[in-house]
Design a binder for these strands. Structure first.
Length: 183
DNA sequence: ATACTGATGGGCT
DNA sequence: GCCCATCAGTATG
């Protein structure tokens, strides 16, 4: 059996399929991280997506290689982390169950919750703006997919003003530490 | 429990 | 100038 890269494992998946597949995966950033428990899908023909109006300087990574990071600054303060899929598609990582590097994350965040919400998660992981475009095949950013697909919760995306009805938010069923509960 | 607000930067019409 | 893929703090039921 041959080792397959993260990029090979997610090849061909659209944003929704990728968002579902990433639930239960392990995400480690330079020695801190845990299990992904909440994601959202963004697609090119989706008015809520940064890629909706085509490539720009900010969203260039969304049109770059699959399996790499799209990191952007949100509300001038926070960073948010995405996994790039098909061209113009990405999955926002919204929450982790913290497992690795707890002391590091604690010291960066100061207070709980550590990784519940995209901005908090980015801060806990020590993400930087120049992580934009890096591969999730390591050494700095690493994702290991779950062996089996866990049961999912499904809902609508948070914090957007367009395409609010699309059921493109996914969570690990019954998980603690979601940024918001599922109905 | 929900409701509002300020912080703060960059992207876009 | 306005709009955010957010969060922490404060105020109030």
């Amino acid at each position: 059996m041959t080792a397959t890269t993260f990029q090979e494992q997610i090849a061909g998946l659209d944003a929704v399929a990728l968002a579902r597949r990433l639930i239960g995966a392990s995400l480690i950033v330079r020695g801190a991280g845990g299990t992904i428990i909440e994601t959202e899908a963004y697609a090119p023909d989706d008015p809520a997506s940064h890629s909706f109006n085509g490539p720009t300087r900010r969203n260039a990574a969304m049109f770059g290689p699959s399996g790499h990071a799209y990191v952007y600054r949100c509300y001038g303060i926070h960073l948010c982390l995405n996994v790039v899929g098909q061209p113009g598609e990405a999955v926002l990582i919204r929450a982790l169950a913290p497992q690795v590097g707890l002391d590091l994350m604690q010291s960066r965040r100061g207070t709980a919750p550590l990784c519940s919400g995209p901005g908090r998660l980015a801060e806990a992981l020590g993400l930087r703006a120049d992580d934009n475009g890096l591969s999730f095949a390591g050494p700095d950013l690493a994702i290991t997919l779950a062996l089996a697909q866990p049961d999912l919760s499904v809902g609508t995306r948070i914090g957007i003003s367009k395409a609010q009805e699309l059921p493109w938010r996914f969570g690990l069923a019954g998980a603690k530490g979601l940024s918001r509960p599922f109905a």
